[in-house]
Design a protein around this nucleic acid. Sequence first.
DNA 1: TTGTAATATTGCAATATTACTATTATATTA
DNA 2: TAATATAATAGTAATATTGCAATATTACAA
Lengths: 109, 109
Amino acid sequence: MGSTKLNIHDAENNYLAKVAKVFSHPARVAIIKYISSSDSGCICNDIVKEIGLAQPTISQHLSEIKKIGLLDQSASGKSLSYSINTDKLNACRRLINDFFVKTQVNASS
Amino acid sequence: MGSTKLNIHDAENNYLAKVAKVFSHPARVAIIKYISSSDSGCICNDIVKEIGLAQPTISQHLSEIKKIGLLDQSASGKSLSYSINTDKLNACRRLINDFFVKTQVNASS
DNA sequence: TTGTAATATTGCAATATTACTATTATATTA
DNA sequence: TAATATAATAGTAATATTGCAATATTACAA
């Protein structure tokens, strides 16, 4: 009891929920927007300043976003430069949109 | 500490996160799919049988989905008939899609 | 090598979520 | 009216999430 019963759902529903969960916290939404808005990658420290949460909290959110493969990172001096993996972002977009299309079609038929 | 700091984010990000949270649990995804697939509304008891969680748990998930206005309900004998509010579903779809479009455009510019 | 800046990890407290059993409210049927 | 069916609510235990301070790690520079 207490934890989500993943085993009773199919893989498709579990994965959609997993992806949606990444976007289900305003800090992660803000982080993704901020990284996407910076021209050539984005340094963690700048995100900390931008968002207004402590560095470990941002680091934790970044790792949640990384878990679904939405972030690329590359070393840049002693900093890390984060950027959005646009292929993955597109895949997420399609995944979610397909769900809406299917649901919409069903709901209005 | 412990709870999401809504006040440091703007309303747009908070709302997107709130909507995404509804889709961030596989049971809710399954419930929404199931309701949308039934021709003329859908009875709570059928959802309980379909999903395989206890009735109060389903009821709780339904109320989460209701919170963003995604469900319509109407009395039908001693049962309640749930259906998807397609306008709201469309609005959610657009909200999320706009986020992806903006993010995508930024990320690849 | 020593110091320093940037990020990750650990550990913890506060809060939220998930799921259940028991109960209640309401409507229907006998 | 009494029994039954349906769904919501209350209460609770288990687990997850959020956010922070403290600390560790990594990479560079002097």
